[in-house]
Design a binder for these strands. Structure first.
Lengths: 155, 155
DNA sequence: GGGATATACTTGCTTCGGCAAGTAACTTAA
DNA sequence: TTAAGTTACTTGCCGAAGCAAGTATATCCC
């Protein structure tokens, strides 16, 4: 039972009413919402969100390829998780693995034409899912500030 | 390959620049952030977020107990997932299952004193995780509006 | 009252993800 | 130049969650 030692007293500062309201709404957004988006993507496109993101980041990369650890950090997954995602996408022909010429330990995940086509087929569903589950509910917010805040959260 | 038929044209309406900025930042927030919060809770408190939420909602319920499906909907998990969470928490003595007197098919998950103590031990970590990973990055936002929007997303 | 249906939960099976250990290839330093 | 260390990726093992099927109880309707 190695628990963290006592937290600094600041951690116990009570939440303001507004913060509390945000915190109360958070589980829905952080836990249920990703599952809902994933489920729609899976149902309508047979792609998980991480698979979709992989195709997307690859499509935007120079030469449509990224080294494994670059892809991992783009999709914010562990390297082992990324290995498996690439395995799946490779087995369906959407990605090819290419040896890296400059570093024999390294592989490039390279988006195939089929992979690009798959992405183009899938993105309307992804956009629809994000709109329906998320964007459409934010009408009252200042999106510019929200985007900045979310980028800030991201780091 | 049963794919959804063509989406309504509205789904293809392009994103505004602000919407796009939000969407770009979304994977970090919806996928990486929950993992980060979970990891901190697991590391420092040996509790998953769903376990923590279960204890929390039970502590707030009348008689500190809820029927399984009530708990499931509170924590927004499937019933089978809830069964397993309750199994885990029960095996550690934090929850007891009590037969429902009015309905023989039903069980109450009931928070024990040990469970309440566990919750009280864990909440500062949870609060700290939420603050550090999320709340502290929202300084620029109108939290009242954000809370309303998030509640809106939740439904 | 008793069969058909519905409800509340549990279990079996599968998938996904992380960590830690393993392997191969590169780099550094003696 | 070769042994030690580091890096890039993969594999083995595990836990968590969902769906679909199973079980037990309740309700409905004749």
């Amino acid at each position: 039972m190695t628990r963290k030692p006592t937290l600094p007293p600041d951690a116990l500062r009570p939440l303001t009413a507004d913060e509390d309201a945000v915190v109360r709404a958070l589980p829905s957004v952080l836990y249920a919402l990703p599952r809902a988006i994933d489920a729609q993507m899976q149902r309508e496109q047979q792609l998980s969100n991480t698979e979709y993101l992989s195709l997307m980041y690859l499509s935007e990369a120079p030469d449509r390829q990224l080294r494994m650890h670059e892809l991992a950090s783009a999709i914010e997954m562990s390297l082992s998780g990324t290995t498996r995602i690439v395995n799946r996408l490779e087995s369906e022909g959407f990605i090819k693995r290419l040896r890296c010429e400059r570093d024999g330990r390294s592989w490039h995940a390279s988006l195939t034409d089929a992979g690009l086509a798959r992405l183009e087929e899938a993105w309307p569903t992804n956009l629809d899912a994000i709109r329906r589950h998320f964007l459409d509910h934010l009408k009252e917010l200042d999106l510019k500030k929200l985007a900045a805040a979310l980028r800030n959260v991201a780091t």
